[in-house]
Amino acid sequence: MRNKILRLVGGRLIAGVGVLWGAATLTFLVLYFTPGDQAQAIVGGENAAPTPEVIAQVTAEYGLDQPWYAQYLSHLGRILHGDLGTSYRLHTPVTQAIGEQAGATLELALAAAVVGLTLSTVVALATAKRRRWIRGIASGSELVIASTPSFWLGILLLTVFSFGLRLFPATGSHGLQSLVLPALALALPIAGVLGHVLREALEEVLDEPFIVSARTRGLADLTVRLRHALRHALVPLITMTGYWVGALLGGAVITETLFTRQGIGRLLLSAVNAKDLPVVLGVVLLSAGIYVLLNLVVDLLYLVIDPRLRDAPATARPAVGGAS
């Protein structure tokens, strides 16, 4: 079994290297084929008026006069050394620019993850396989909340709680007070989706013979749900959670913009607007890295939850459901 885990971690890491290599290649292709002169972009964009000497110096420094394969290799080499390039706009290394903003985004993402997971688990556990009207209300609210775009939810929250009741600040990224609304805006739509997934899984599990079997032993309903059903239903939940946390960076762009918070999302949006490619691609690489790491964690969690997988071939992995 220990071998099994080592093999799985090894396999996942190799696959992860593949994903990262793919991401690095993608960033290279984007840089290489972007219309316009790269050297010009590096020294300050279209409005800068550098001397020919400066252009020549930048071209030589970045190897822009080399053939594509040499450029590709040195691109990969730089990434391996942790050099993601220099921001066209900020003129600081991309790693530094991202590093300065990472804390605020991490704070937001963690808060949203905790809120989303707790809410969906509690609601699903409480309502799965209950009376018709309870399930109706639960699935109805899940549907509405999951269909609500986070930027609109944010506007609603701002209207009610900031400008209406004046409970929470509308902007800023300092203190717990300023975290509440952005975290809710980010977490609620996903809590709807996760709640739906978990409730469907629970209702399926609660129909299984081993649940009936557990009930015939005289266990209380809550015991049956917590001890027997929840563990089975967690598999689809963590699969979805893995995907969702990966998508949090995208969500952060919206939430941080809406609530004028510091963070990687805001950094990314201003980079997109300024055509600051190194920063955009840096965030892409970061996202791929998070994805690889998350998948490893999710795979290990599968093994913790379902010991049967420890004996199954390494490829056995619960399938990923669709958008519903």
Partner: peptide
């Protein structure tokens, strides 16, 4: 019922692979 089930009436379902919690 909880005192009866399992305590005074034992129940065996068919196919133990699905009647015992696989986890």
């Amino acid at each position: 019922w909880r005192g009866i089930r399992g305590g005074r009436i034992g129940f065996v379902l068919q196919d133990a692979l699905v009647s015992l919690d696989p986890l």
